[in-house]
Simulated scan of single mutants.
Amino acid sequence: MILVTGATGFLGSELIKQLHGQGLRVRALKRSNSSIPPILLNLTDIEWFNADILDYFALEKAFEGITHVYHCCGLISFHSRDKKNMLRVNMEGTAYIVDLCLSHQITKLVHVSSVAALGDSKTNSPVIEKDIWEFNGTQHGYSISKYEGEMEVWRGIAEGLNAVIVNPSVIIGKNAGKEGSGKLFDLVRQGISYYTPGSLGLVDVEDVAKVMITLMESAITSERFIINSANWSYKNLFAEIAKRLNIPVPKKEISKFQLSAGLWLATLAALFTGKKQELTRDTVKSAFQNALYSANKLHQFFPNLTLKPIAVSINEITDHFRTS
């Protein structure tokens, strides 16, 4: 039987949908207060198991009869107040999964990391798997937590665990709604007039799940793979979304000073309203980075693998926005 952690998340639910479609038995891990995603509601033969990723003994029960594990559970936040909790979930939680995989002699683990755990390119070319992550005090908490989580997997590999790590770029898809990457689409839908000069890597959620299953079924172990369909500038991404939604295309490039001023106002508003601000120091920094990633290694290992063009994903997402 297959165990999937983070089963109610954006990626975890898509992964389970694809595994179920192949007729595989799945035990889906979720917290007791988490709701089952709509795309999984009609799949009655999924075995749901309530356990917190930080509850070792509950996790141990979830591992009974398990042979393969997909570790999708993770906390994503760019707020400094969440850093401590992110380190616990993304690092300590991963350590528990690795230890249980070893003690239960699991056949294979596929661990979901992030491009945030990769180092910066030293040649101004797209980042690859061999670029070494070096702490310099500028990394945000999410990056640190995902890097530390990877270190736990590599520790498990050194102790004899068969494992593969995937480093997806920004994962998009219609079922994200207005959360996570869906916020980018919703931001444009609301009618913003500006864009930032940075760029980012993008990949469809269906492709990430497909690659994970392919890696699980392969003999490959002790490797990590960037999963990235294409690198897009924020300018082109916002323009494509706006065109598909039949709204004005953002035409103004905002400066870092202007966005930083907006951060100050957002912080002030959060203090008075008590609401969690969406704009943070780390999101401002990310918006101005030219983040480029190469998936050449993945295609070298799987030359027949094709990833969905990002323009197609954007069409699917904007169509969903118009009808939902």
Results as ranks from 00 to 15, higher is better:
V211I: 11
V211N: 04
V211W: 14
V211R: 11
V211K: 03
M212W: 03
I213L: 15
I213D: 08
I213M: 14
I213T: 10
T214C: 09
L215H: 10
L215D: 05
L215N: 04
L215G: 07
M216R: 06
M216V: 06
M216K: 01
E217K: 09
E217Y: 03
E217N: 15
S218F: 10
S218V: 01
S218G: 06
S218W: 13
S218Q: 05
A219V: 10
A219F: 11
A219L: 15
A219I: 06
A219N: 14
I220M: 09
I220W: 02
I220K: 08
I220T: 12
S222C: 15
E223Q: 11
E223H: 07
R224W: 04
F225Q: 05
I226C: 12
I226P: 00
I226Q: 03
I226K: 03
I226H: 03
I227R: 00
I227Y: 09
I227P: 04
N228H: 11
N228D: 14
N228V: 04
S229I: 11
S229M: 03
S229K: 09
A230R: 06
A230Q: 15
N231G: 06
N231R: 12
N231H: 13
W232N: 03
S233T: 15
S233N: 07
S233K: 05
S233Y: 10
S233Q: 04
Y234Q: 04
Y234S: 05
Y234H: 09
K235E: 13
K235M: 07
K235L: 12
L237S: 00
L237R: 00
L237C: 08
F238H: 12
A239D: 07
A239N: 04
A239F: 00
E240C: 02
E240P: 00
E240N: 00
